[in-house]
Computed example of a mutant assay.
Amino acid sequence: MPRYEFRCRACGDTFEVNRSMAAAGEPASCPQGHADTVKLLSAVAVTGRSGAPAPAGGGGCCGGACGC
């Protein structure tokens, strides 16, 4: 289930809520009981290893052709 991050405008706390994507736009009350909250835009970083080695021979800004 996706996790959404909210910030309370009344007390400034940031908190997370687990809910379905269908309910993503619904308001959330902060743990302190305040109702004036805003959903934050979260950046997702996905990392991992594919098992394939990195290509050899530069790369740089233009695939190694510029000599940088």
Rank of each mutant, 00 (worst) to 15 (best):
Y4I: 05
V17E: 15
E5K: 11
V44G: 01
N18Y: 02
A10M: 07
G48F: 02
D13E: 15
G67N: 10
A22Q: 11
C61F: 11
T47K: 11
A43L: 14
E26Q: 14
A23D: 15
A10W: 00
C68R: 14
G25V: 01
S42W: 00
G60C: 09
A10D: 15
S50Y: 02
F15R: 06
C61S: 12
E16Q: 07
R9W: 04
A23L: 09
E16T: 12
R19Q: 09
C66R: 12
R49W: 02
D36W: 00
A22P: 00
E26M: 08
T37L: 02
A52K: 14
A23C: 01
G67D: 13
A43F: 10
Y4G: 06
G63I: 08
C66P: 06
C62Y: 11
A54T: 10
G57L: 08
G12R: 07
S50Q: 07
G58D: 07
G12D: 09
A54R: 10
E5W: 04
S42L: 12
C8Y: 06
V17F: 03
A22S: 11
D13T: 15
E5G: 01
A56T: 15
A22N: 08
D36C: 00
D13V: 15
M21V: 12
E5S: 12
G59M: 03
F6W: 14
A56R: 15
L41Y: 03
E5T: 15
C11H: 06
A45S: 13
G57I: 08
L41E: 14
G59K: 05
P53Y: 01
C66I: 07
A45K: 12
P31V: 06
G48A: 03
L41V: 14
P2V: 06
N18D: 15
Y4K: 02
A45L: 12
G60M: 06
A24G: 00
G64Y: 06
S50K: 11
Y4W: 10
P27T: 11
A23S: 11
C61A: 14
R7T: 13
A43D: 12
E5L: 11
C30N: 07
A22K: 12
V46E: 10
G57T: 08
H34L: 03
S42E: 15
S29E: 13
P31D: 02
G25S: 11
A45H: 13
M1W: 02
G58Q: 03
L41H: 10
A65N: 09
K39Y: 00
G57H: 08
V44L: 13
R7M: 11
C62F: 13
V44F: 07
V46I: 15
G67Q: 10
D13K: 13
A65E: 14
E26P: 01
R7F: 09
K39I: 07
A35L: 10
G51M: 04
E26V: 04
C62V: 10
C66Q: 12
P2T: 06
L40A: 04
G48Y: 03
G64R: 08
N18K: 09
A23G: 00
N18H: 04
A35Y: 00
A28M: 05
R3T: 15
G63T: 08
C8M: 08
E26W: 00
A65S: 13
G64I: 09
R3Y: 01
R9A: 04
T47M: 04
A54I: 08
C68F: 07
P53G: 09
C30M: 05
A45P: 00
S20I: 00
R9Q: 13
D13Q: 14
V38I: 13
E16F: 01
A54Q: 09
T14M: 05
P55F: 02
V17M: 09
T37N: 05
C11W: 04
